[in-house]
Nucleic acid binder design. Structure first.
Lengths: 152, 152
DNA sequence: CCGAGATCGATAGTCATTCTCATTTTTGGA
DNA sequence: TCCAAAAATGAGAATGACTATCGATCTCGG
């Protein structure tokens, strides 16, 4: 099916994903590989229409289904904003911890990282909160909402 | 319509909301007041079904429509999670700046605040990012995703 | 090479949210 | 106070992102 991949998945990443899927009794099929390649090539959180446009060989129904499978396996993360469509990107442990700039005008989402010190301080403050509330923290999410340079 | 309000809106808050709505050429009608009262009484972000259950006199279609109006006027904030329903709460400038604990199990959302120092540090780090990216920041959003004490 | 089981993909649902429109309410002028 | 124009309401229909279905296709172990 995949003749010309959008991006090449390095061996290590490929193995990590194969392993994650195996733990959910799922295979890293061509369709799922094409999805990951499209997300990798996109370089930012993508909506399903964007993914389908990036690789027209993908079927919509399979894209929806496989993105659910990939999310359950921890390969991708689903990002939901006020935009009509949800977005997907590679999970943080396959890339690196980061946050999102969300454009309230066009809906576009891009990544950014906090410098290490700020991230550490934030983490510490969050741990205190969690301890005080009896909440078991799985992850923290930090978004900047505003207007991107394109829309300005 | 509103015989027995769920919560009483203090004069000052009432005037603020009336003013915000007026700027959008909208009125602070009974139905809209009942919505605000329900959110005030709820004390945490509420889904529309929760709001309708809290005040059974409200019509679903009007609740949806008026919550859109109230959001456009800056009176309430719409919070979207992975849950089926969106949630609404009073806008921060009518209450105070805070963040959210999102339970990945039951979908419940509750508020928490960072201590002033941590919030200041975060703010400073975020301003640097914004300056570096040409992104015009309107707000920042910080969520803790995990499992609440009820679900644990 | 074969067959059981997983995956695919076209299509038909589902359901939160939005739209429509006739009815009711509100407002400002006479 | 009365009236008409404008706004708001609410019941129901429509929309559209997403999910479920199911026969066809692919995959892997034997």
């Amino acid at each position: 099916m995949s003749i010309e991949p959008l991006a090449t998945i390095e061996t290590e990443l490929d193995e990590q994903i194969t392993d994650l899927l195996r733990r959910s009794d799922q295979r890293f099929t061509k369709g799922r590989r094409a999805l990951v390649e499209a997300l990798l090539a996109g370089g930012q959180p993508m909506t399903i229409p964007q993914v389908l446009e990036a690789d027209t060989r993908l079927a919509q129904s399979s894209a929806y289904r496989n993105l659910v499978v990939l999310e359950a396996a921890g390969v991708v993360t689903r990002i939901v904003t006020n935009d009509d469509f949800a977005r997907y990107e590679l999970a943080e442990h396959l890339t690196h911890h980061h946050h999102h700039l969300i454009c309230s005008s066009c809906g576009d989402v891009t990544d950014f990282a906090l410098d290490d010190q700020a991230e550490d301080e934030l983490d510490e403050a969050l741990h205190k909160i969690a301890a005080a509330t009896g909440f078991t923290v799985e992850a923290h999410r930090l978004d900047l909402v505003g207007v991107c340079s394109d829309c300005d």
